[in-house]
Nucleic acid binder design. Sequence first.
DNA 1: ATAATAGTGTCTGTCAGACAATATCTA
DNA 2: TAGATATTGTCTGACAGACACTATTAT
Lengths: 230, 230
Amino acid sequence: MPAVPDAHPPVAVTVDLVVLTVREERFQVLLIRRGEEPFVGRWALPGGFLRPEEDLAEAAGRELQEETSLPADRVHLEQLATYAAPGRDPRMRTVTVAYIALAPDLPIPSAGTDAADARWWSVDDALGEGDLAFDHAQILRDGVERARAKLEYTPLAAAFCRSEFTISELRRVYEVVWGTALDPRNFHRKVTKADGFVQETSDTTTRDGGRPARLYRAGQATTLHPPLLR
Amino acid sequence: MPAVPDAHPPVAVTVDLVVLTVREERFQVLLIRRGEEPFVGRWALPGGFLRPEEDLAEAAGRELQEETSLPADRVHLEQLATYAAPGRDPRMRTVTVAYIALAPDLPIPSAGTDAADARWWSVDDALGEGDLAFDHAQILRDGVERARAKLEYTPLAAAFCRSEFTISELRRVYEVVWGTALDPRNFHRKVTKADGFVQETSDTTTRDGGRPARLYRAGQATTLHPPLLR
DNA sequence: ATAATAGTGTCTGTCAGACAATATCTA
DNA sequence: TAGATATTGTCTGACAGACACTATTAT
């Protein structure tokens, strides 16, 4: 790395969040309507500027807290990618580090102070709109693809469920996120036998109707061997 | 995203490269010895400042060209992650976007203008040293892990081979990167049957000794279904 | 009883790893 | 010839998808 150039053009660093959940049988993303220029009135990913003494993960957690007021320990946060195309922000050179947040069905978020409005969108509708602010459509596409891929080889689907869940609820996460139907019986067998994916509890529930289903908690595994295939 | 804060503390954005190859039966990384403060004389990943009109991928390609003088079309470049811990650069707040570059066995790189020296290190030795500049040990660990993981579910191992390669050469890439032994016969069957992984040519070679081996080119697939497992 | 969902058992084809056998080069 | 590596074939056990069947609740 060479010496610091004599004069930097000023660069701003932001953190943007792709907050994903499964609600009402849909794969959904949290968008805010912008209350300020640029892109006033357009829908955008929540985000904000990196503060001077803050690391990226801290900033992402803080933004998540500010936008969703959700307990941070219930949400899986991971860095997605960084976007820096010249001109992506008309105000100045802006580099944004995008994070994905996988959350269970949340209470409807309250609008942040700088957002005119905030609500859940189905991912398909959000991308169909075609007029997200900045390059947020691309970031959203990348985040959705990352989430879909991660369901294959990690037990992250559980991040979309409440802390105790049934195998059916877990299966519906896969079906909604991937847009495919899965055989309930084979899925049950695969998931309960995969080492460390889910942990049996002693409770059952009838909240999904029919015969009582056993409740499970997320296991301690971080990767699935072998992976579930789409 | 809120309004631009009235005063930003200045932030510098750099791009660092984890250039990986397989040479002499070892998984190796290109390091440069720093010729300037900070960390003078310490080994570091090659990299440099993002220029005002440049996107990240362009900057990564340019740095690669400057440091290795390798034809860019022979190298797989992909964004790894972004690092921004306060204090990671003692000069000023610096955000670095790391890329991994997977390259075939290269001619020994010439030192860049700002590097006192440049050479290949075995990945294990580089991490064992324990005194890489900045947070480059962490970036290297992450890059190595990304490369290892990607071999499982993409045909990227071919990026470590010359343009025409034998199945044995491809297998040795896996063995060196993963540090495991693979059955030559099962590997041959798996790879040649996987759709789009490798493309047969009409040529053979005896450069590895023994019976002439058919030469293959990289196929057009981008993911492997099902993946190869470590 | 009927409907709904949970969970188990079984069948069958495919694919993994283990490894025998054969092919074709160099020395 | 022996030695090295390539490539094909075969066996076997595990696991995938398909789906019959049983279990347990609500109405």
